[in-house]
């Protein structure tokens, strides 16, 4: 089966690891661990992000246990880091805590927009790749920066559709398509997804996967939205493989004129 086949043959492979699901779920913002567990099951995702924060001895329940029971692998992130130094240290701590080389690298350059700091991002990515990490950088929708990240040795790029948590969808679809053309590594749309159609559009633009956090976690019904995202990612992928018709200005009849009756 080819592109878009839902039987698992069309896997998303990052750093040699195939995943049947092309949806990555962010665990932030869920009202409870139970809702997170139910949403993960509904999403079909095999990979979910976690952050590293000061432990709270009073906290109830274990996030890592929930993810383990869900059969989902952890993708630690460096959320909240503003410098390459902090991001690299956080990645090394995450490797120690979660026993994984994978890191979703975020280096934030602006507190209001949470846009990435490209210069610090490149520095951190270079150091982490050299240290043996599988680096998945959260980046702008800049195809040149994406290529630089690929050249450094990143395993994928995660361009934003719009600012984190904004739910504004994909503000510059042409750039996302250009990012897809610019690199050979997987492109996973990250940030900005607000609803299922945004995820489908990302896939139709050629993205290899979609990450969704707030759109699922903060939906009125997170489990239903997780299902919607799963189906949207599959739909968008199937549509790419199916090959859409070209856009045209004027109508093109779907019913032939040939054999049309003449009524005098």
């Amino acid at each position: 089966m080819g592109v878009g086949s839902p039987d698992g043959a069309d896997a998303l492979t990052i750093a040699g690891r195939p995943m049947r699901s092309r949806l990555i779920v962010g665990t932030g913002g869920f009202p409870s661990l139970q809702v997170l567990a139910d949403a993960l099951a509904a999403s079909g995702s095999e990979l979910a992000t976690v952050a590293l924060r000061r432990i709270d001895p009073a906290a109830e329940g274990s996030l890592t246990d929930v993810l383990q029971q869900a059969g989902v692998s952890l993708l630690p992130n460096t959320a909240g880091c503003h410098t390459a130094r902090d991001a690299v240290l956080t990645a090394r701590l995450a490797r120690e805590a979660f026993d994984t080389d994978w890191i979703k690298l975020e280096v934030i350059g602006d507190q209001d927009t949470l846009l990435p700091d490209a210069a610090e991002l490149l520095l951190a990515a270079e150091e982490l790749v050299a240290d043996g990490f599988v680096v998945l950088p959260y980046t702008t929708d800049d195809p040149v920066l994406a290529r630089r990240l690929e050249d450094i040795g990143c395993a994928a790029v995660m361009p934003l559709g719009s600012p984190i948590g904004s739910g504004m969808g994909i503000r510059n679809p042409y750039n996302i398509a250009l990012v897809r053309e610019a690199v050979a590594i997987p492109v996973v749309l990250d940030a900005g997804v607000g609803t299922a159609s945004d995820a489908a559009l990302a896939m139709e633009l050629g993205c290899d996967g979609v990450m969704s956090a707030s759109a699922i976690a903060r939906a009125q019904d997170p489990v239903a939205m997780a299902t919607a995202m799963r189906l949207a990612v599959q739909s968008g992928r199937l549509a790419v493989g199916a090959g859409r018709i070209p856009r045209r200005t004027y109508a093109s009849p779907s019913t032939p004129d040939e054999g049309l009756a003449e009524f005098g």
């Binding site: 962010g26 976690v50 000061r54 432990i55």
Partner: peptide, 10 residues
């Protein structure tokens, strides 16, 4: 000393 653990995020 920083003692860190998993937290929902991202």
């Amino acid at each position: 000393v920083e003692v860190l653990g998993a937290m929902q995020g991202g």
